[in-house]
Design a protein around this nucleic acid. Sequence first.
DNA 1: CCGGACTCCTGTGCGC
DNA 2: TGCGCACAGGAGTCCG
Length: 285
Amino acid sequence: MPELPEIEHLKRSLEPTLVGAAITRVLIKRPDVIHHGESGVSQPIKKRDLLHKRTITRLDRRGKQLAILTDGPAICIHLGMSGNLRLVCASDRPPRTDHVHCKWHWSSSATQGTMLFRDPRRFGGIWVFSSEAGLLEHRWRDLGPDALTIRSSALHESLARSRRPIKAALLDQRVLAGVGNIYADESLFAAGVHPQTLAASLKAATVSKLAQCIRQTLRRAIKAGGSTLRDYADANGEQGWFAVQHRVYGRAGLPCTRCDHPLTAAIVAQRSTVFCPTCQPVRHP
DNA sequence: CCGGACTCCTGTGCGC
DNA sequence: TGCGCACAGGAGTCCG
């Protein structure tokens, strides 16, 4: 499900409700999806680790990860393939509760309600930290620059050392944080770069174009509320509409929107990949 | 050290 | 209509 645009949209949909709210109750239904983010801690996770009795000061995002911050402990939520966070107010029709692994009750001067972490496939999880500094030091330190603001110089530098196909490099969160399978294919199409091109062989001008296309693709997707394929919804259960703008993802065999040539399917970096063989020619360095 | 293969899960949609 | 299989938006780990 969720890549950078979905997480950014989710963050924006949570902020008005959560920032300034106090966590009044925490329910842990599946302890095995919650982890200590700081090494060397082996005690079981306690409710206070999950912000019980704390006031939320801020939300933050790096790549596909969402942080909920207080003036003390912090948590980092990763949605994996099938995770989501959902806000429920007392008056709402209750959403499905199967595969809900953690539940928070929050209360603010304006209102109160519940936030659910649901993740059927359990590729996601929650990491707890004693402070924001702990999160930055132990979990976000290894993430590359955020894809929404990636600069071509930074991208060029890390690609120069990589002998992988460019698509594999874009999916590597240490190179660039936030791009997944959908937006890798969409960005490569927008930049006219073949997904199998060796990363290090890209010229500076091409990397510059690619960086620009990545930023633009992600910005447009955020504006559309992200890509809903099956499950994704924001904190209020609303779908995203960027999927209707996909140029290549999910369109194998269909005509290219630019040249009408049929789009090609391939496996790159163990992931299904769609591209236009005409608009994204193989380049020989 | 690097890059590719494999693995962890459940749900869905397709073909027979 | 029912069943089984392939496949899915992520990423950690292992092995060559």
